[in-house]
């Protein structure tokens, strides 16, 4: 328990130590929301007010979870390039578990800044969009959504064991998330073929589908989110283990 507490606390403090973080994340999140809100207001101007509002709240929630999900690719690659990864591999705890807890602490600090801002926007400009049940699900479904988002990041990060082109990997990841996560384009508004394609991939379950369930909280919707989240987390982590096993073997042969 102490290990969990100190890992999360250290991640939280890391964010707090970087003084400019508050302003950067606040402004970044605000601009992202303004952009998607104005864009989608134009697109949805012929829809009913109810549908339009719920889609915009959906996008605000999806942007929030996107902002909170840890971006570990740069951190992972820094550990590889500096060789500090050797220390992490020699710890009597799983390196990935420590990284999950540390980034959870970091994300909780981000949540502290972003959550009041986003919820403020929702309650002031779109009153009545979220029920008490929505608020409850927002908290309850967060851990599993976070774990899936982390696992997706981890899988992309493992590629840095084979290449130093971190920027390239991060760009590919961002492009994939932009199209397939539902954080920029609501899944329900996608053409049916595209919707089917997105539903068989893991990305929307870590972002868009989470927002969808909060907007329309039904038992069926919750199970259609949580079950794929668990299955995809297991599958992606297995892929990560396979890739990293080969990657670490290759990496240590480079000496030093």
């Amino acid at each position: 328990m102490k290990f969990i507490f100190y890992s999360v606390r250290n991640g939280f403090r890391t964010f707090m130590c970087q003084k400019n973080n508050f302003m950067i994340y606040w402004i970044n999140n605000l601009f992202s929301i303004l952009l998607v809100v104005f864009l989608w207001q134009q697109i949805l101007k012929y829809s009913s007010a109810n549908q339009s509002n719920s889609q915009i709240v959906y996008l605000i929630l999806a942007q929030m979870i996107l902002a909170i999900t840890p971006e570990i690719i740069y951190r992972y690659s820094q550990l590889i390039q500096s060789g500090d990864i050797a220390y992490k591999l020699l710890l009597p705890v799983k390196f990935e578990f420590w990284l999950l807890l540390d980034t959870l602490g970091y994300s909780l600090a981000k949540l502290l800044i972003i959550f009041p801002l986003d919820m403020g926007i929702v309650f002031i400009f779109f009153p009545g969009s979220l029920s008490i049940m929505s608020g409850l699900l927002l908290l309850l479904l967060f851990p599993m959504t976070f774990v899936l988002g982390f696992t997706i990041e981890l899988l992309f990060s493992s590629v840095t064991l084979f290449t130093y082109s971190v920027w390239g990997i991060n760009t590919i990841k961002s492009a994939v998330l932009m199209v397939l996560s539902g954080a920029y384009f609501p899944v329900s508004l996608l053409p049916s073929a595209m919707k089917k394609f997105v539903s068989v991939l893991p990305f929307s379950y870590a972002y868009g589908q989470y927002a969808e369930v909060i907007i329309t909280p039904t038992v069926a919707n919750v199970s259609l989110l949580v079950i794929p989240q668990i299955i995809w987390t297991i599958i992606l982590y297995w892929f990560y283990v396979m890739i990293s096993r080969v990657g670490f073997k290759q990496f240590v042969t480079q000496g030093g």
Binding site: F3, S7, N10, D84, A86, Y87
Partner: peptide
């Protein structure tokens, strides 16, 4: 020239984490 301590936070925080791990 390699480090296991966390860069941005005080040294004691890293020691507490290491103590909890071991």
């Amino acid at each position: 020239q390699r480090t296991q301590l966390q860069w941005d936070i005080p040294v004691i925080d890293s020691y507490e984490l290491l103590g909890s791990i071991y």
